[in-house]
Nucleic acid binder design. Sequence first.
DNA 1: AACCGGGTCAACCGCAGGCGC
DNA 2: GGCGCCTGCGGTTGACCCGGT
Length: 263
Amino acid sequence: MVRAPFYDKNGLKKGEWSPEEDDKLRSYIQRFGHWNWRLLPKFAGLKRCGKSCRLRWMNYLRPEVKHGNFTVEEDVLIIKLREQYGNRWSTIVKSLPGRTDNEIKNHWHTHLKKRTKRNSTTSDSDVKDNSSCQSEATQNSEGEAERILIDTPANMILESSPWSPVTSSTTELSSFSSGSGRMPSFNSIGGVEDICLPPSEMYEAQRSGDFWSEPFVADNIYDYNQDSGNSSSVEEGGFHLPLPFDDMCYEDYAGLLYDLMQV
DNA sequence: AACCGGGTCAACCGCAGGCGC
DNA sequence: GGCGCCTGCGGTTGACCCGGT
């Protein structure tokens, strides 16, 4: 699904990233940070342009990046925020920690755009039958998002929703990777590589529900490193669904979600 | 089984803004 | 103010996937 790897006229590699390249980039950034994207590939031993490295890191390798299906409340947020901000994905992504602008953009164009279009012409007939669990959850989530969307003012989602990522450490998230030169240097003392979950484990954690009950691990690690232990607790003002999403019947989940939005 | 076309998503490209000189 | 460099953003591309015929 990705461009096949090739070398351009300058000898720079383009296209799909290999696992070895990922390892190189990840370990370099975890060790030294991204102080200069243009020079980074040279020092990291990569035959890539800085732009490509940055994109790979931002959209895929960052420990806090979530991979996997969008949840109903994420869909709702995206739709509402897009109504509010238009195609300013970088603004929208601030309310969805762990997601990337690219991911949200793709999700919008492939799923939500046509949904909202259809929503304007048809009723909510496509969300009638949500009786089965899990496998249908992702299929129906967009329809459910639509239904919730209709009934819920944007400010309720943005400000009152207890699971809204807005309540979490959004700003710290962005500070982890933004701002060249301000990246903390990760050395062997409390080095991130000792604690930080690789993306595959993050994904597993997410699948098993741990991701949601212990969100933003890397984020807090960063806080810890930076603030000498004054890590901001994600529990404060936080909210945990009683069950991991994966274990819930979609109807139950959607019902719970809907109820919560009425609060 | 083979073909086709729409869907998906990682990666690319061009541009704009910020910043330092 | 002008220039160049760097970063980040948003639109687009292209290869693979998958269901339909």
